[in-house]
Design a protein around this nucleic acid. Structure first.
Lengths: 329, 329
DNA sequence: GGATTTTGAGTAAACGTTTACGCACTTCGT
DNA sequence: ACGAAGTGCGTAAACGTTTACTCAAAATCC
């Protein structure tokens, strides 16, 4: 069995309490014994039993993270950011992937909650009400990343409304007047709604009347992108298209190739996300890059600072990443 | 503060021990009280304090998972598989991403070890000796997935040697006689070595003398693929190329496009991994698909069954996935 | 119906750590 | 040199759960 604080205490000829004080760097102890104890701990290969510590101090340092299985390829970026900051501040992440089945989700969340959690972070997930209720019933802090909710849960994400202005402005400057938005048509999604509104308002700002037909595609999935060309038919009723995720853009790119539509000469593509997927296509995708690592870091910092009030929204940076898929008209 | 077993006991008019027995479904209790207790637990919103439970039963149900940050895009597949099986069997996964800095890695691993871990699973990582020593010093079980080690650590992976036979046979059947292997030239990597050996032996089997120049590229990275064409020069000294990972194949595909080499007419490409990346290229990549989810599930099963003896190697399935990047000569 | 087994449930100790409290001893100020 | 303040450390309780041990009551057997 493992080495405990008592083993160290015995060897050092002092009480377990003293060892604990030294190892946690709390309370009073002499530098001399501290030195000796730390040395012994190292030598004997001591590892704190975190469960015992958690039990003793009622507060835990574990943060639960809910990740959707429908793999968004930026989730790892966010997780990396969280992990980095969590490590820095001495927190632990309990990452859990959510299957699609609701009953399964409920069971998963419940088992997650049996850890005394500091907070639960939802990564770009839209939870069913049933699952959501389980979470809110438990009195743990909640935080949503990369997805704004309309129920008061604080969130961290890009400014989806402003982001669409950035994109539309860019396209307008390049001479584009007919622009389509693909993958943000879901009326129930807060993020999609913000994007649509930003899209429409930005066009209006430039005196362009918004054409409802040019907002299409519920999912921001590869399949949505693939079906885009076929849906509108060639010749396309727009010169540029905005993909609501990199993977949507790749779908459009491939569909264009299949249909003999030249990118960017016949069609310009710009996507939202800017993950490294944009670098491995030919031509390279032009994108607005979201700072996912920053979202992750901010999430942990926010939790650590206890600055989680309902309805708070924190916006992270966004940057234009020109690639080779936007033509100047 | 949270509801405890005692609160339930009080309300039910029985002792905490009985409640525990009922909730863990161990020992003796009557169906009637069980019913009542479970009902109360539900009503009162009880969540087991897992820390206390872990402390009480010395054995923990937490499995540590080490994941490299240099993102291999199949890691999530493996994790998903692990998660699914872990949930099934009542285990928990503590997933930790490893930064590149060794000192940082050591600290990370140490903090991981302060949880009483059932086992530590390494996901396709090659650890520095220093980090490795920390792991072996702690008396926890170790298991390596998707990467064979030469130090006795049991592992789960595809049969890399046999896999190269599968690939070479396939290419040979399509008429290819000059074949290159890209991204497996690292002499220190056990996996790369197995692949090289399989490659060479498979060629020999068909009476083809192995040309050392055609094994090139240390990393299985995008960059390696990108530089391949330039490295060999056009016309290429081979008709088919094996990418040691999908991402390498994509690099080769893009470089070929840039160099005016037609795929598959002038060059056939086949990759190892078969992740969904192969579906989003044009043409679609032909690949041998590894069953990553299976690796993950098996890892957990193996740990659960305690069948972890040193030097054990478990092979998972591999399947040929024809795409559009291999031509028949 | 008496002896024996089975059942349901309580008691108490244990897991390893933290921490409030208290005590003896040292240091310091005057 | 005497009281006050400070320092180092030990004692013991607490955190919530599990489990070996008991024991009384109920069920079973012949």
């Amino acid at each position: 069995m493992a080495i405990t604080i008592k083993d160290i205490a015995n060897r050092a000829g002092i009480s377990a309490a003293s060892v604990s004080r030294i190892l946690t760097n709390r309370g009073r102890f002499s530098a001399a014994t501290a030195q000796r104890v730390r040395q012994l701990a190292e030598e004997m290969g001591y590892y704190k039993n975190q469960s015992a510590a958690d039990l003793s101090q009622k507060a835990s340092r574990v943060i639960g993270v809910l990740v959707p299985t429908t793999h968004t390829n930026f989730a790892d970026e966010i997780i990396k950011g969280m992990q980095r900051q969590a490590f820095e501040l001495g927190f632990e992440l309990l990452i859990v992937f959510l299957e699609d089945d609701v009953q399964h989700q409920i069971k998963t969340v419940k088992s997650l909650l049996s850890r005394q959690l500091l907070a639960v972070v939802m990564l770009a997930v839209d939870l069913e009400t049933a699952v959501f209720d389980v979470l809110t019933a438990a009195d743990t802090h909640l935080l949503s990343i990369s997805n704004q909710l309309n129920n008061g849960i604080p969130s961290i994400s890009s400014d989806n409304y402003a982001m669409m202005h950035t994109i539309v402005d860019y396209l307008y400057d390049q001479g584009h007047r007919q622009v389509a938005l693909i993958g943000a048509a879901d009326p129930d999604s807060v993020v999609a709604t913000l994007r649509r509104q930003g899209f429409i308002d930005a066009l209006a700002k430039h005196g362009i009347r918004y054409n409802p037909a040019l907002i299409w595609g519920i999912d921001n999935a590869y399949k949505t992108g693939l079906e885009t060309i076929q849906n509108f038919g060639v010749p396309l009723p727009f010169t540029a298209v905005i993909g609501s995720a990199d993977i949507v853009g790749i779908g459009i790119l491939n569909a264009a190739k299949d249909a003999g539509v030249a990118v960017p000469d016949d069609l310009s593509i710009i996507t939202v996300d800017g993950t490294n997927l944009t670098q491995i296509t030919r031509p390279r995708l032009t994108a607005v890059q979201q700072d996912f690592a920053q979202m992750g870091e901010l999430a942990i910092t926010t939790i650590a600072n206890q600055t989680l009030s309902p309805n708070t929204i924190i916006f992270t940076d966004v940057e234009m990443r020109p690639g080779d898929t936007v033509a100047s008209l």
